[in-house]
Design a protein around this nucleic acid. Sequence first.
DNA 1: TAGCTGCCTGGTCG
DNA 2: ACGACCAGGCAGC
Length: 421
Amino acid sequence: MASEWRKLPLSLAELCIDTTLRCGQSFRWRKINNEWHCVLSNRLITLTQSPTHLLYKSTLPAINPPSEESTLPLLQSYFSLIVPLSQLYTQWSTTDPNFARRCPSFTGIRILNQDAWETLISFICSSNNNISRISSMVNNLCLHYGPYITSISGEPFHDFPSPEALSGPEVESHLRSLGFGYRAKYIADTAQIISQQRPKGWLDQIRNPAVPPADNPKFHPGEKATYRKAHEALLELTGVGPKVSDCVCLMGLGWWESVPIDTHVWQIAQRDYNFGGKGKGKTFTKGMYESVGDHFRKIWGEYAGWAQSVLFTANLKSFAEQAKTGKKAKKEEQQENGDVVVETEVVKREVVKVVKNEELTVSRTRKRKAVKEEESQQQDEDVKMEDVMDGLTLSSQLSQVSTTSTTTRRVSKRIKARESQ
DNA sequence: TAGCTGCCTGGTCG
DNA sequence: ACGACCAGGCAGC
């Protein structure tokens, strides 16, 4: 049964849920008729926002319901409302002219204090992937392995599955059939490591002691936990590299100085912060990864990850309109309802497709493998690509280089070699 | 150890 | 229609 709406005074400068819940931090929030829905800590949360208030209500499950009173502290911690966001924007704008230029259209973006385990699995899914597909994969994990909570107009909502629930012997093959690809093994392996080879509560032991889990304010922090140690500890898990590790540190463990460097942030570093004069075009090494992060930490300070997420969002394609000018805000507001409905329906359709077309996708994969084996002379294609690349500007070549296409990498390497002759 | 390559899939673009 | 590339990387050489 749903509770009544409750109000929390909060300005849009302190939190904008329309931006924060869509910018690739959490992949489970769904917007239906101007209301945001997500299961957090064993209850369905529903949110909407006015210029002066955050409105929230909860729907509790029939089995083992949490108390109504626990929802407010849960949300306050989940959104880290203790952190004075507009003050931080002012501070970053003072020390960083680029931030000052980009931030006006992107106020109210907060780092979510998400469950560490969910964050870990979600970002293992994120490699070589896009937001809508990550969302459908995470939704599938919940539908197949997470506990049912409640339904909204026939639509079921499940909580995120536990490590134990994802540790079964059939998990990898099942996830493959659901379209997880090579990430299926990473998820299954990580679930087994966490549930069998780590002490209970291990993820919370490596948290920032100053930032308790949203659903457990009185947790027992680990001794001498540091950001660096947490980062390294996560790297030992399967499917977790430096970028995914930093995402978990920032959004799941309260290490707010963590700055995840993905291909977009690397582009921002080069374009707006004059980074990598010598090493540009080179593959992104671990050393470079650390120095870019350290550079941003020097500029933005102890909340560097928060500042990064503002610039990251401003750089997202799906926010391109918003980036142009803040004056278009009214226009967007009018379009927003329609847009978002379309968006959620796309995700829904994808889920259905994935569930239904298991065999189709498998056969397509096999076909692709077969085709690949036949084309032993990749060289011809490279030469064609080279002609195309010759027509591109240097800057666009550089942005191409930072992508993951092996063909493009090979070609750009060749162009570089030719240039240096 | 730095650099390279393959990887699952779905969407987009020419 | 169709192929190349892209989408918030990572593991294994």
